[in-house]
Design a protein around this nucleic acid. Structure first.
Length: 546
DNA sequence: ACGGGATGTCGCC
DNA sequence: TGGCGACCCTCCCG
C-alpha cells in the first residue's frame, strides 16, 4: 500500500514546536500515532530522521497524504465513487441488504434477477393444502400470467417543471393524458403530456410539502391534497381554486412540537369518506358530502409518530390499511375505529414508507420499508403473521429524497408487477445511473430496470398509468413520461420526443411566471443541438416481458 | 470545481 | 421522554 507523501518545510528557528495540536491540525487529526506505526511506520520514521539530520534549523513535518476513507475516516481503503462505480466502505454493513461481512459490490442480493429474494419463513406450511397449492395451483398461476409491456423509453418530459423536488404523482382517472404532480413546496402541477406545452403549476394551495394526491371519484375535475402544512385541500383543476377541508394548525406556528402535518390520504368512495392521517399518529375522517370532519381523531399508530400512508381496500369499504414510522402497517375495520383495535399489525424492521392493497382483488399487501426490503403479505394463501415474501431492494431513506414507494401495476390482472425507483446506482457505460425497477413479486425477479443516460438523478416517485402502458416518474424537479419502445415507434414515427425545459433557475421562475423561459425541443432520435439535457434515445433501457 | 445548505430518522444520554 | 448529534451512493446553487 503506497500513499503519496509530502514534506513541508517550516522555519522554526530555535523555538520548540509550540504545540502538538497545531501539527495535528496539519495532518488532519489523523492517523493516530499507533495506527501510523501499524501501517507504514518505516517510511515515516526514515523520512523524519533524514530530513532533520540534514537541516537542523528547519523542522520538517512529514504529512502522509493518506487516502482516508470518506465514510469511516480510516486509512488503508477508500470509499466513494471511482468513476461511475461506488466503492463501499468495508467497515460498514452492506448498503444494500444491511448485513455485515460484505459490501454492496459482493452482496448476493445485488444481482436481483437471480437472487434478491428471501422467502419469508411461514409457519405450518407443510399441510396438505399447502402441498396441493404448491404442486398444482402455483404452476398454473405462473402459466396464466399475462405478458406485461414495460414502458422503457422516455417519451416526453418537463425538465425542472417544479421549483422543488417532486413528492407525488397521480394520473387523471378518465382523461388519460393528464398527470398531476405535487412538490416539496406544496405546488400542484397539472400537465397534459399529449400536448406537452400545456402545463400549469398552482402555487397558492399549500405552504409546504404536498404529500399525497387523490381524485374525487364522483367529480374528476377536483383533486384532494394532503400537505405538511396540516391542511387537506380540494382543488378545481380548471381554475386552480381551492377549498380547505381540514386545517390542523388553525393558530399558526406555535413551534415544531405542536405543528401537525398531514401525510396519508385516501378516499373511501363507497362510504363517502375521505381519510387522512398526521405526524402524531392520528387518523381524521371527512364526510365528502358535507365536507365536515367526522368524530374525533383516532390514534392509529404510536403516539407522536408519523402515519406515512393510508389505503382503502378496493372492494371492501370497511377495510383500511395504514403504515407509519412506528415500523408497522396495520389493517383496520372502519366500522369500529379506535386506538388499539387494528385487525392485523404487520411488523417491519424499520419505518414503513407505503402499504398498498393489490389493486384488483385486494388480497395482497405490498409494503416498502426503509430496511431496504419490499414485503408481500398474502391474505389468502399466506399467514398475515409474517410476509409471504421479502425482496431485498435498494430504496433507503435519505432525508434529501422523497421516500421511495413501491407501486402496483393497476393493469396487471395477476397482481404481480410492481415498480419502484432504485437508490444505489449502477455503472452503465461509465455513467452512474439510478434505474427504475420493475419487479415480479411472485418470484422476486427483476423484470426490467429502465433508465435513460440523461437522467442522472434518483427517481423515487413512480406511477403506472391506470389504463395505458405509461409510466410517470418524478426525479428531482423533473417529470418524465415513459412508454414501451414499440408503441413509441409506431405512434410517434421514429424516435421523436418532446422535451420541455423550464426556466433555468428558481429566481427566474419567481420573477416571471409566464412561459418565456421555457424552451421546447423536438428530437427525432438524433441528439439535440443543445448542451441542455437531450434525452437521446437510450440503448441501456432493458425491456422484457413477464 | 468546490463547498454550503436543506433537514428525516434513530440511537444515545 | 426529550434533546442532540450522526447518518447519508442528494441535488442545487453561488
Amino acid at each position: 500500500m503506497s500513499f503519496t507523501k509530502v514534506v513541508i518545510e517550516r522555519e522554526t528557528d530555535s523555538e520548540e514546536e509550540s504545540s502538538s495540536g497545531e501539527e495535528n491540525d496539519q495532518v488532519d487529526d489523523y492517523p493516530s500515532q499507533e495506527e501510523e506505526e501499524d501501517d507504514n511506520d518505516q517510511v515515516v520514521e526514515n523520512e523524519a530522521s533524514t530530513t532533520t539530520s540534514r537541516k537542523p534549523k528547519t523542522k520538517h513535518i512529514t504529512i502522509s497524504l493518506k487516502k482516508v476513507c470518506k465514510v469511516c475516516k480510516r486509512p488503508g481503503h477508500e470509499a466513494g465513487f471511482k468513476g461511475a462505480t461506488y466503492i463501499d466502505c468495508p467497515m460498514k454493513p452492506c448498503f444494500l441488504c444491511k448485513m455485515p461481512g460484505h459490501t454492496t459490490i459482493s452482496c448476493p442480493h445485488r444481482v436481483t434477477t437471480e437472487f434478491g429474494v428471501i422467502p419469508a419463513p411461514r409457519r405450518g406450511t407443510h399441510n396438505s393444502l399447502e402441498y396441493v397449492f404448491a404442486r398444482q395451483l402455483r404452476p398454473c398461476i405462473s402459466a396464466i400470467k399475462p405478458a406485461v409491456v414495460i414502458p422503457d423509453q422516455v417519451n416526453c418530459a418537463v425538465i425542472r417543471y417544479h421549483s422543488r423536488r417532486v413528492t407525488c404523482l397521480e394520473f387523471h382517472p378518465t382523461n388519460n393524458n393528464f398527470l398531476l404532480s405535487g412538490d416539496k413546496k406544496g405546488q400542484l402541477g397539472v400537465w397534459d403530456f399529449k400536448r406537452v406545452h400545456e402545463k400549469t403549476v398552482y402555487g397558492n394551495i399549500h405552504g409546504c410539502i404536498l404529500n399525497n394526491l387523490k381524485f374525487n371519484p364522483t367529480n374528476d375535475g377536483t383533486v384532494y391534497g394532503a400537505s405538511s402544512d396540516g391542511t387537506i385541500s380540494c382543488t378545481d383543476l380548471e381554475t386552480g381554486m381551492s377549498m380547505g377541508l381540514i386545517n390542523l394548525n388553525p393558530n399558526g406556528w406555535q413551534g415544531s412540537s405542536s405543528w401537525r402535518m398531514l401525510y396519508g390520504l385516501d378516499i373511501n368512495s363507497q362510504r363517502g369518506n375521505l381519510v387522512a392521517a398526521d405526524n402524531f399518529g392520528s387518523l381524521y375522517m371527512v364526510d365528502m358530502r358535507s365536507n365536515s370532519t367526522m368524530g374525533d381523531p383516532v390514534l392509529i399508530h404510536k403516539k407522536g409518530s408519523k402515519v406515512t400512508g393510508l389505503h382503502c381496500h378496493p372492494h371492501q369499504p370497511d377495510l383500511l390499511l395504514s403504515c407509519g414510522n412506528d415500523h408497522f402497517a396495520r389493517i383496520w375495520d372502519m366500522r369500529k375505529l379506535e386506538a388499539g383495535s387494528s385487525i392485523y399489525d404487520l411488523a417491519h424492521n424499520r419505518v414503513v414508507n407505503s402499504a398498498y392493497f393489490s389493486p384488483q382483488s385486494g388480497s395482497k399487501i405490498l409494503t416498502t420499508s426503509q430496511d431496504n426490503r419490499l414485503r408481500v403479505w398474502d391474505s389468502i394463501f399466506g399467514n398475515m403473521d409474517s410476509p409471504s415474501r421479502e425482496i431485498v431492494h435498494s430504496h433507503d431513506f435519505n432525508r434529501h429524497l422523497t421516500p421511495f414507494r413501491a407501486e402496483w401495476d393497476p393493469k396487471d390482472p395477476s397482481e404481480c408487477l410492481v415498480v419502484i425507483g432504485r437508490y444505489i446506482s449502477e455503472n452503465y457505460n461509465g455513467a452512474a445511473l439510478h434505474p427504475i425497477d420493475f419487479i415480479d413479486i411472485s418470484t422476486g425477479q427483476l423484470v426490467a430496470a429502465v433508465m435513460d443516460p440523461n437522467i442522472t438523478t434518483i427517481s423515487p416517485v413512480n406511477k403506472l398509468h391506470p389504463h395505458d402502458d405509461v409510466l410517470a416518474s418524478g426525479s428531482s424537479r423533473s417529470i418524465f413520461i415513459w412508454r414501451p419502445k414499440e408503441k413509441f415507434e409506431s405512434e410517434l414515427q421514429g424516435d421523436e420526443k418532446m422535451i420541455i425545459l423550464c426556466g433555468k433557475g428558481e429566481k427566474k421562475r419567481r420573477q416571471s411566471d409566464d412561459e418565456s423561459d421555457d424552451a421546447i425541443y423536438r428530437s427525432k432520435g438524433k441528439s439535440l443541438k443543445t448542451k441542455k439535457p437531450s434525452l437521446k434515445s437510450s440503448s441501456h433501457g432493458r425491456k422484457r416481458k413477464c
